[in-house]
Design a protein around this nucleic acid. Structure first.
Lengths: 325, 325
DNA sequence: ACCCTCTGATTAATCGTTCAATCAGAGGGT
DNA sequence: ACCCTCTGATTGAACGATTAATCAGAGGGT
């Protein structure tokens, strides 16, 4: 490995001068800077991030903790974070908390031991991470007081609910996966708040909820709003089993615009997160925090975007038929 | 931050003794080891991985490069690699190559600059990474000469093809996504080799292939074997549009057992990768390489597992009806 | 008493970089 | 001549650990 020392010897100056020339910090004449730069280039010099880290106390590495990497949405977040991070010259060290809070704590400890400059945390459902010795950016949802940035899940819920109300549905089912999840709670809260009082909405949860939702459709409900594309897909399967056509007899919506949403049949109406923006904001926040500042927009959410596809349509139920708008 | 020096001062010995006591390397009396250990415990001492890295030249960090993190299979690999890595005390630094070979090279350079001890590479479709200054483990497919470990894609193709042949199909379509992908090539090669000569199989590729496959079914084919669950899902949508019932008129298979495979309708017959084993093997290989050894099983593949669900059944086409076995 | 060996510890260098402090010398002003 | 300022460079310590080389002293053998 070629070090600053080698360059210094070659040119006949001290290592300090080389360091200054390369980083542009001290006082070095222009010719000298040019000579050093070109020699460094020739030798293929790459500064040792390790040595720099030791001296400065900054590793330039961020730790990323996710609840369970198998959630199909996380890779996109991870990818965008990784891209946003390296515009700021940060690297990303991953840790998986394997679904358990103890493991999450373990994972955090390991990252801290490696000297990360900051932590990006997507918390376990229903847990709040304890205070950390380094700056932290939490990506969760608006109702989490620790939240640094996240999608506007409630707003997204409102978008999809309003869409359903607008096209004429009057009796709907709202279907959540896991009531412990704050994200899902917020999505549902957004839906219920946005629905006009003329709409009859019932909230159901979990596996049992899926069956009950189908029964509810047979009893006259014309739409099922879910908090996840995965749930929507399962509902779709149950509907087929019950021979209920979608969207003819029932409209269906998901959440997150996962990979399969556009290619399932009917293509799923859903709400997309602006993952790029969330990632960029998270990196922005964590890096200002690391520099000791306070980010003006910390805690703000990023709007979601309604993606209307074929799984939602005007209700076709005899009791509720109405002219198209 | 509490360092080795602080402990040394507290007890009144040299830092060397503390280092020796903690790592168990030099000659230190048992009582002294005990005293140092307990003092370290009290102070909450955590060794600086950065300082250690500078001195030893080993960071204990592996770089992970993936072609495009949005592929729904990669998060599982990343998760398992991360878990396997930390049993070996390695951390994992991620980099995304955003689909382009140049970016892949860039990503590798960034990781090397951070001083990773080794690289885990899932290559871009159709590209072979150039030689690297650190040990590398490549996760790709058997036909890649650089491959270190991977699923036995050809074997997986054989499993699913044999299943289809066994239950009586005689005219099938094999549908690939992208002919550039070596993985998909291997899967298809495995399928065709495993099919008996009595079976008529046609290979088709890409978006155009999906339409042609549906036409082929209308012309009498009774099964479509795809190289990916995502493709299978798209085929499923096209079949519904064409009002072709599955699996009644046509059996359908995917690959990779993605999250939605069990919950789509009909639940998808597919081939699962043993991701845990692949990850564990990859870490094993890279760590023996880092220690300067050669791994005895490098290059071997890990068997895939056929997962039979409702999307495949005995062919029901009049021309090919036969008794159940 | 002398030499040898062994144990348990210390010394000091080193990894590659940064940075505050220092210094040599040029040039200007009086 | 003398003092002052400014520029461009150097010195040397530090970051926190590891490690080869060294050393003091205890004990054993002759």
């Amino acid at each position: 490995m070629v070090s600053i020392k080698k360059i210094a010897q070659d040119i006949g100056v001290s290592t300090a001068t080389v360091s200054n020339a390369l980083t542009g910090k001290g006082r070095v004449s222009e010719q000298m800077v040019a000579r050093i730069r070109s020699r460094a280039e020739e030798l293929g010099y790459r500064p040792s991030t390790v040595a720099r880290a030791l001296k400065t106390g900054q590793t330039g590495i961020l730790g990323l903790v996710m609840p369970d990497l198998t959630n199909p949405l996380f890779p996109r977040i991870a990818q965008m974070l990784s891209i946003a991070a390296d515009t700021r010259k940060f690297g990303i060290l991953i840790a998986d908390s394997r679904g358990s809070p103890q493991e999450q704590t373990e994972a955090l400890r390991r990252l801290l031991d490696r000297g990360v400059d900051g932590l990006l945390i997507v918390p376990q459902k229903g847990t709040t991470p304890e205070p950390m010795p380094v700056p932290v950016a939490v990506i969760n949802t608006a109702s989490d007081p620790a939240n640094s940035v996240s999608a506007d899940h409630a707003g997204g819920g409102a978008l999809v609910a309003r869409h359903i109300a607008d096209i004429g549905h009057r009796r709907v089912v709202i279907l959540g996966g896991d009531a412990v999840s704050e994200v899902q709670q917020d999505r549902i809260a957004g839906m219920t708040r946005a629905l006009p009082p003329t709409v009859d909405a019932r909230i159901m949860w979990g596996d049992a909820g899926i069956e009950r939702a189908v029964a509810e459709v047979q009893a006259g409900a014309t739409a099922i709003l879910t908090t996840s594309d995965l749930i929507a897909l399962r509902v779709r399967s149950e509907l087929m089993r019950a021979q209920i056509p979608a969207p003819d007899q029932v409209s269906l919506t998901g959440f997150d615009d996962m990979s399969f949403a556009p290619i399932m049949h009917p293509a799923l109406t859903t709400v997309a997160q602006n993952v790029d923006e969330i990632a960029a904001r998270a990196i922005d926040i964590i890096s200002t925090k690391i520099r000791g500042g306070t980010h003006p927009r910390e805690g703000e959410t990023v709007p979601m975007r309604l993606v209307v596809r074929q799984s939602t349509s005007i209700p076709n139920h005899p009791a509720q038929r109405r002219p198209s708008r």
